[in-house]
C-alpha cells in the first residue's frame, strides 16, 4: 500500500472528527480548518508510522499537538501554563448534596448555546478531555495514550470537568430563571 492510499484510508475518514476537536481547541471554525490542514500535512509526513488499529486516535493526537503549536504561535497569551494545570488539578470534587437537585432539571433544559458557552469556559485541560470522551467518543485507554497521562489522571480530570460543567450550567440556568 503506498503512502497516498494509506493517507486516504487512515486520515480522510476522520476529517470531520479532527475538525470537531480543532474547533473546540481553537474556539472557531476558520482556525480549526487551518489547524486540521496543517495536522494532515504532518500526518501525511508520518503516515508510515500509523497502525490500522488506531488511525483515528493517532490523527486526533496530531491535531491536538498541532493546535497547541498553532495557539502558542498565534495567540501566545492564551497558552495554558503547566503551573495553571497543576492548579486545576487541585480543584476539589465537592461533596454532593443529599437532597434531590434542581440542577438535574436545569441540565436537561439547557440549550445548545448555553452548553457551548459552558464548555468553552472550561479550563483547557478539562475542555479537551471532555471533548475527547463525549464528542470524539474515545475510551479511557485511548485518551490516556493520546494525552500521555495515566488512566487515573484521565478519570480524575474527566470527573472534574463534568463536575465544573454541571456547576456552570446550573448557575447559568438559575440566572436565566431569575431573569425570567
Amino acid at each position: 500500500m503506498d503512502d497516498r492510499q494509506r493517507f486516504n484510508e487512515a486520515v480522510l475518514p476522520h476529517v470531520d472528527d479532527a475538525l470537531s476537536l480543532a474547533r473546540w481547541l481553537t474556539g472557531n471554525a476558520v482556525d480549526a480548518e487551518d489547524v486540521v490542514q496543517e495536522a494532515c500535512v504532518r500526518a501525511f509526513g508520518a503516515i508510515a508510522t500509523v497502525r490500522d488499529t488506531s488511525a483515528r486516535a493517532w490523527l486526533l493526537a496530531i491535531v491536538r499537538n498541532t493546535a497547541f503549536t498553532w495557539i502558542a504561535k498565534n495567540r501566545p497569551k492564551a497558552v495554558v501554563t503547566a503551573g495553571d494545570e497543576a492548579l486545576f488539578e487541585q480543584v476539589e470534587l465537592e461533596m454532593v448534596e443529599t437532597q434531590p437537585s434542581p440542577e438535574a432539571v436545569l441540565i436537561e433544559k439547557t440549550d445548545a448555546e448555553h452548553l457551548h458557552l459552558a464548555i468553552a469556559a472550561l479550563p483547557q485541560t478539562y475542555r479537551e478531555i471532555l471533548v475527547l470522551r463525549e464528542i470524539e467518543g474515545l475510551r479511557y485507554q485511548e485518551i490516556s495514550k493520546e494525552l500521555s497521562i495515566p488512566i487515573g489522571t484521565v478519570m480524575s480530570r474527566l470527573a472534574r470537568a463534568r463536575h465544573l460543567l454541571i456547576q456552570r450550567i446550573g448557575m447559568a440556568g438559575q440566572g436565566k430563571a431569575g431573569a425570567a
Binding site: D16, L19, V36, E108, I169
Partner: peptide, 18 residues
C-alpha cells in the same frame, strides 16, 4: 446529574462537518 449532562451533551452538540 451526570446522566442528564451526558444526555444534554449527546443531544445538543453536533460534530463538525468538513
Amino acid at each position: 446529574r451526570l446522566a442528564q449532562l451526558r444526555k444534554a451533551l449527546r443531544s445538543q452538540l453536533t460534530t463538525a462537518r468538513a
